[in-house]
């Protein structure tokens, strides 16, 4: 049992991890086909795992309804919505349009309920950005002050009116012989200090990802196996 629960998964992980890492350096067709095959296997396993997801959703919400826990009415909606989508999907043959080009019941449910709901959630982001910006732009410290100043410049630099004020009314066209527009300042802020910080993060992330991968491939990090001995 120990072999099946611990050693075999570690062995599979080591072999697949090493082979996949080396595959990047081997340009043969076999290497590319093997990589594609492994990706296909992952997709197949994911499809089976989707069943786990469905079972989980069903069990969690059925329990809530049975126990009449707070918010159980929402669980009823989840189950009803799930069943409605499955039944209508079967009736429509899984197609979004009918042979004459009109939306099927399934297509209508998808395009007229799910898509608008998704769009609504995404649209809320605009309000959240405003509220988050309001909180973070309070200049309580030097760092927050720098953030505020930078954000104000970037925001104003993206507004046509500000550019009109900068170049048209204030007449600021060149500084020490160099032509500078408001958009140039914004571009510099985004392209130089901002890009430098992001690249620093990217270096760290890349090294961290490699270190984590090595720990897993060599069996140093085993927590993801769970399951005990």
């Amino acid at each position: 049992m120990v072999f099946l629960k611990r050693q075999l998964p570690l062995l599979i992980c080591f072999v697949i991890g090493t082979v996949t890492a080396l595959q990047y350096y081997v340009p043969t067709n076999f290497s590319a086909e093997m990589s594609e095959g492994l990706s296909n296997w992952y997709i197949i396993v994911s499809m089976f795992a989707a069943l786990l997801g469905f079972v989980s959703v069903g069990m969690v919400h059925t329990k809530k309804i049975q126990r009449q826990e707070p918010g159980w009415a929402y669980s009823t909606l989840v189950i009803l919505g799930f069943l409605a989508m499955v039944i209508v999907g079967f009736v429509s043959g899984g197609k979004e349009t009918t042979p004459d080009g009109r939306p099927s019941s399934y297509g209508w449910l998808y395009n007229c309920t799910l898509v608008p709901l998704q769009a609504t959630m995404f649209a809320i982001l605009g309000f959240y950005v405003a509220s988050a910006a309001f909180r973070s732009f309070r200049a309580k410290s030097f760092d927050a002050g720098v953030l505020l100043a930078t954000a104000v410049i970037v925001l104003l630099g993206n507004v046509p009116f500000t550019n009109q004020v900068w170049a048209g009314w204030l007449g600021i066209h060149d500084v020490a012989g160099v032509k500078i527009e408001m958009t140039d300042i914004v571009s510099w802020l985004i392209g130089t200090p901002n890009a430098a910080a992001r690249r620093g993060v990217t270096f760290g992330v890349a090294l961290g990802a490699i270190a984590t991968s090595l720990k897993i491939i060599f069996g140093i990090e085993r927590a993801y196996l769970g399951g005990g001995d």
């Binding site: 795992a49 989707a50 997801g53 989980s56 927590a223 993801y224 196996l225 769970g226 399951g227």
Partner: peptide, 14 residues
């Protein structure tokens, strides 16, 4: 993601 869920269930149990 159902696979992540399965992994996390085992990790939490452990």
């Amino acid at each position: 993601d159902p696979i992540v869920m399965a992994v996390c269930q085992e990790i939490t149990r452990e």
